[in-house]
Amino acid sequence: MALRKQTLDGNMETLLLAVLADGPSYGYQIVNDLNARAQGLLAMGEGTVYPVLHRLEDRGLIDATWRTGDNGRRRKYYRLTPKGRRAQRENLRQWQGLVRVMHDVLRPPPADIANPQGDPA
């Protein structure tokens, strides 16, 4: 399902922290990870991941080091800081709580509540 830009905007940081929780990674690999986990997530452009990564770096949630990759090119590797790991755990808790609430509220009502008269739809 295609998600609205606004829906994703506020949650991209959470998604990137979740990918980096699996270990240090660089932009291209992070994008591939995200695409592998949720196809079509980056429909608005792979490059939009970098502003979010830089913002997380500025806030001290991830740090970055330049290393030479397998292909001989210099690459910027990101990894979670202790602060980022705490934020990622907290985000996960918040999301699990939100999903539970949304599921409870939005689930389809039982048939006898939705149609108490038994009228044909």
Binding site: G45, E46, G47, T48, Y50, P51, V52
Partner: peptide, 11 residues
């Protein structure tokens, strides 16, 4: 990669 303006302004 996306619209250069969108990516650039984001940076």
């Amino acid at each position: 990669h996306g619209n250069p303006r969108k990516v650039g302004y984001g940076l």
